[in-house]
């Protein structure tokens, strides 16, 4: 098991190096001279040269790269041009909001899509099979921001069931004491039912938007792999041994069928982290995605770079977690590594 984790960590390192190089190259591809931008239109040649020396952009590329890496190692992501704030600090405060949203969305999609896929596979031709097929064809065509807006219209404007789609918490409530940064967990720890329910209400629509977006690939994969496994020889053996149908479906079929679904989850996460940005914009969610979008519009590059780097690191880490989860379930991977 430890060798599996070690191997996967080793495999993640080239990805991380690639990510660092690409984010560095993206900075250097910036049109124009950041020093000139910093100095303002009235600056003299000399002032610009001074700033350039301060920023280090007058040095050879390789020296700049070394500085970039050593800054990164110290957790330094530069400062925002527009606010002057430290990007690393801003991302750290905003990250829990994005993480909470993505994780709840992921949980929702697993809770919805996996049973859907299983039921569709075990009851072929039933209404749930047809629904799953329609959802998995139409679902991939839904632009995530469009789904979000439709949900807002129906649940906020029409039905009045959900609160105004702005932010993580009603403006009249104050955030729970910061422990994890996840409002649901912090509110639960503070035993504040009112804040917990309010935070949940704010969270449910954006999380559902993300879930609907990821529903199609996971439901489709669950259905397909469950169908394949159900016709496998070992399921026939389990049936012929008279094992109860719940035992056959859960212990024998599902645990095998879940393996390709876990693999799919890696791809889905890539889309989910991207979709997160759009959902944050629709719901004015104060996460790192909306932070990056604001900076993008202002051509403020440091926050965007910090955001891209954070997202990629997160994605590499999540993929690592997925690989390890796979190894935990599948002894063939665990033992042969």
């Amino acid at each position: 098991m430890f060798s599996l984790i070690f191997n996967r960590l080793m495999l993640a390192i080239p990805s991380l190096i690639g990510v660092v190089i690409v984010t560095f190259l993206l900075t250097r591809a910036l049109p124009g001279d950041p020093a000139a931008y910093f100095a303002g239109p009235a600056a003299t040649e000399q002032a610009i040269a001074e700033i350039r020396a301060k920023l280090g952009t007058d040095k050879p590329l390789i020296v700049q790269f070394g500085r970039y890496v050593s800054d990164l190692a110290r957790g330094e992501l530069g400062n925002s041009l527009t606010t002057g704030q430290s990007v690393a600090k801003e991302i750290a405060t905003r990250l829990p909001a994005s993480a909470e949203l993505t994780l709840i969305g992921l949980m929702l999609v697993v809770i919805l899509a996996v049973p859907m896929g299983i039921l569709a596979a075990t009851r072929p031709g039933s209404w749930i099979d047809h629904v799953t097929r329609i959802v998995s064809t139409a679902g991939v065509s839904l632009p995530v921001f469009f789904t979000g807006l439709l949900l807002v219209y129906v649940f906020y404007y029409r039905l009045g069931l959900s609160p105004s789609p702005v932010g993580r918490l009603d403006v009249f409530l104050s955030a729970p004491p910061h422990i994890t940064g996840f409002y649901l967990i912090d509110a639960a720890l503070a035993r504040d039912a009112e804040v917990f329910v309010a935070a949940l209400k704010q969270l449910i629509l954006p999380a559902l938007t993300l879930a609907i977006f990821a529903l199609a690939p996971i439901a489709r994969m669950t259905r397909a792999s469950m169908l394949a496994v159900l016709s496998a020889d070992f399921v026939r053996t389990a049936r012929a041994s008279g094992l109860s149908s719940s035992k056959v479906i859960v212990t024998y079929a599902f645990r095998n069928a879940v393996l390709p679904v876990i693999t799919t989850l890696g791809m889905v996460l890539s889309f989910l982290l991207g979709a997160n940005v759009l959902v944050e914009k629709v719901f004015a969610w104060p996460g790192i995605g909306s932070f990056a979008v604001e900076a993008l519009i202002a051509s403020d590059y440091a926050p965007v770079q910090g955001f891209v780097l954070t997202m990629a690191a997160l994605y590499v880490a999540l993929n690592l977690a997925i690989d390890i989860a796979y190894g935990l379930i599948d002894p063939r991977v665990r033992i042969s590594s």
Binding site: V22, L273, L296
Partner: peptide, 12 residues
Amino acid sequence: MAFPLFVLAMGI
């Protein structure tokens, strides 16, 4: 592939 694709597109 190490990047979430939409995020990379934003960065580019």
